[in-house]
């Protein structure tokens, strides 16, 4: 009885579900068509590829801010993550799972810079159906996801710059979408300070 009643409620009236199996999913085609239309809309309005990416990134940013809020509530992790690696693992794992139905494939720190991290996805959902023509070359549809990551990082207190790139790999038929995360110096200073405090 209560179950039937629960089903009848409009989606906006229903309580935020905590059951993982109940998390609603959107059809991939519906998303792909909407995203395709949205990129066309932006292409019509942007004057350059940089502007196009900026606009797409800004949309992702807003999504990221909201997703972080929602997921922290659902995961009951009401304490803010203070460690860079913690928040990056959260993005790589649960957040990616929630957004794209799978975790990201790789999380790695840059070899030559402490403040740079890479997150890789071998088959990023948002660019699965999109072939970028030569004339739009540096454009990467994954910029949407980069915006989401920046949104999450920013609202968690880790201001940073996130960019999406296609990187060819000899063992893979498709180029890998690589997100480059560059944290701001203030974050690194705080991190060093926290680590020193931990050591006592």
């Amino acid at each position: 009885m209560s179950r039937a009643k629960h089903q009848q409620l409009n989606i906006v009236d229903r309580p935020l579900t905590k059951n993982k199996a109940e998390v609603p999913t959107v059809s991939l085609s519906a998303f792909a068509y909407l995203f395709s239309e949205y990129i066309q809309y932006l292409v019509d309005r942007a004057n350059s590829i940089t502007e196009l990416e900026e606009r797409l990134e800004r949309v992702g940013y807003d999504v990221g801010v909201r997703v972080l809020e929602l997921l922290s509530y659902r995961e009951k992790s009401l304490r803010r993550k203070t460690d860079v690696l913690d928040i990056l693992r959260f993005i790589h794992g649960p957040a990616w799972q929630y957004l794209f139905g799978k975790t990201a494939d790789d999380l790695q720190q840059a070899a030559n810079a402490d403040d740079e991290y890479y997150i890789r996805d071998y088959d990023l959902m948002v660019s699965r159906y999109i072939s970028v023509p030569r004339s739009y070359e540096p454009f990467n549809p994954g910029t949407l996801a980069a915006g989401m990551m920046r949104g999450m990082l920013d609202s968690a207190g880790f201001p940073s710059r996130v960019t999406a790139h296609f990187v060819s790999h000899k063992d893979r038929p498709r180029p890998i979408t690589t997100f480059m995360i560059k944290l701001e110096p203030a974050v690194m200073q705080r991190q060093a300070f926290l680590e020193a405090a931990k050591k006592g």
Binding site: I39, Y129, S131
Partner: peptide, 16 residues
């Protein structure tokens, strides 16, 4: 059809 850079009824130039 899901590629934003394709214009309907035009020549198909999609790598994928």
């Amino acid at each position: 059809m899901k590629n934003p850079f394709y214009e309907t009824e035009q020549v198909i130039k999609c790598e994928l």
